[in-house]
Amino acid sequence: MVSQDLKFLISDDSILARKQLKDVLTSAGYSNFVEARDGKEAVTLYAKEKIDVVFLDIVMPQIDGIEAVKQIKAIDDNANIVMVSSVGTQGQIKAAIEAGAKDFIQKPFVSNQILTVLDNIVKGN
């Protein structure tokens, strides 16, 4: 995986949260993004575009983040999905990982958390 060419799908119902995540990735040199406002749109976009890494919120309209993980994994079992949510209960983290998410970042995040998780994914950890 050539890291600077990565294409990201950022899914969060908050335009501000999507912008903050994009700002972190842009400052690290990435520029290829697609955005989804809910879980359903995220699944549709994943099926259409060639996505390398997905950042998913949990609390979203239409389909929540956990269900979106399941549907994306059904499309592509190798999907790289990272949850970014304020609802970091043990139950939700467990549900996300069991559904196939690779990592969970509790909001509010700092940029290093995002970049460290991304680095692990690029290195295949």
Partner: peptide, 23 residues
């Protein structure tokens, strides 16, 4: 963006509350 910040703050605070209750 300004409008979204209200939802974001509320969602963040409520999320942290749920985590605390769960713990």
């Amino acid at each position: 963006y300004v409008s979204a910040s209200l939802e974001d703050f509320l969602n963040l605070h409520n999320g942290l509350f749920i985590v605390n209750v769960s713990n």
